[in-house]
Design a protein around this nucleic acid. Structure first.
Lengths: 224, 224
DNA sequence: GTCTATATCCCGATAGAC
DNA sequence: GTCTATCGGGATATAGAC
């Protein structure tokens, strides 16, 4: 088990062979795991293929059998990140709640994900991966998008424009809370996470409510 | 004039001297300017002291007369960033508006700043500068904080707790819009900036309004 | 599928001359 | 206040052996 909690191929050894050749059971997966660990320690930009190789006891040339270059490895990490986040979202009870409550829960999950899976979150945002180069990465975004937009759509029925706008501000708010949490603006430790998560969820509800209120008052400006 | 629009010392030449010694009028300021250009081109993490020196026609050793290390130069850029942002905020008409409108205007300024001064914005957030090491950086935050908190305080009179919470969500929302704009989620070009700025300002108003509404309904839960 | 070896390039930082 | 010279790292990526 790697420190990031992901399983490495069972046949992978963790030390270089003393004398002979060294073979990984699944160097590709091991590289993804080790990369996540490295990002956790030094940030996305501190990561290097060379050091990941060193940690796994292979030479710096080995990874190039599995990834064309550094970016392709990061894209693989991003795909994993979206899989983890999707799993978090799908673990929520889905149908029993009002769409506002589901969106608040998704916001909680978003900020929680940023806090608990920092390296994965950083990989999704801290880097400028050229998504169009990695179709599987585009596909990995789809389930998240679907879940999110379905709840937004329920709130903005028959108003696709409004839905898009609401989606944008909700995403921005959630993202902002996550980003500032990671910047340390909420302090450190589990208390900071709790506060950020609560405030983010509250902001989601307030945004939905506030937009409703402002739209109404715009319809009948004589009634503030 | 440097591409980032900041004046370089008038005595600074832009090419290395052909034969003799090379003296800058103000290498320190020139380094800050060039650093901003470099960050604009390659991002905060792509920047290097070595390349900044190269561009200015000095050797890699020269900067160390002016900055103890790389981080100190980045801190100087951050100070400049806050000065620019403060100037943007102070350029707004201050007293004529309701606090909600002033906060919406500050949000506009924030997102606008991120878009128009991307390298400065990136320096403030993309790096983990240890602020406590640079007292002048701490001081540079003060005027912004003061402007922001005074408007927030007007809305949350006699409720310092509420003021802090409102400040946090407003900051997060503004930051989120700025961050997603820079990530390209709004597309490219001036249209993207306009949309992001408008949505961010709208979100600010909606957050204030929505929190008010939710607080009220919490006081009298029998009246949804 | 991995290794050896190598090419090529980059960086931050310091000592001491001028 | 800048330069020369240098130390001691680090990186990506390729060619060819096994």
């Amino acid at each position: 088990m790697s420190p990031n909690g992901s399983p490495v191929s069972p046949t992978a050894s963790e030390q270089p062979a003393k004398g002979g050749r060294y073979h990984h059971g699944d160097l590709r997966a091991a590289l993804v795991d080790t990369t996540i660990d490295l990002i956790a320690e030094r940030g996305v930009h501190g990561f290097s293929l060379a050091e990941a190789s060193r940690r796994l006891g292979v030479t710096a040339a080995a990874p190039y059998r599995h990834f064309a270059d550094r970016d392709e490895l990061l894209a693989a990490v991003a795909v994993r990140a979206l899989a983890v986040f999707t799993a978090m979202l799908e673990a929520e009870p889905a149908d029993t709640q009002a769409p506002e409550q589901r969106l608040a829960a998704m916001t909680r999950a978003y900020v929680h994900f940023a806090a608990e899976q920092r390296p994965l979150f950083e990989t999704l945002f801290g880097t400028a991966i050229d998504k169009s180069r990695y179709p599987e990465l585009v596909r990995a975004y789809e389930p998240v998008d679907k879940l999110f937009m379905s709840s937004v759509g329920e709130i903005c029925e028959n108003d696709p424009r409004g839905a898009e706008a609401l989606a944008a501000v909700l995403e921005a708010s959630a993202h902002g809370h996550a980003a500032l949490l990671l910047e340390g603006e909420y302090g450190q430790g589990p208390d900071a996470v709790r506060v950020a998560v609560d405030q983010a969820a509250g902001a989601t509800l307030a945004l939905i409510e506030g937009r409703k209120a402002l739209a109404t008052s715009a319809d009948s400006p004589a009634r503030p």
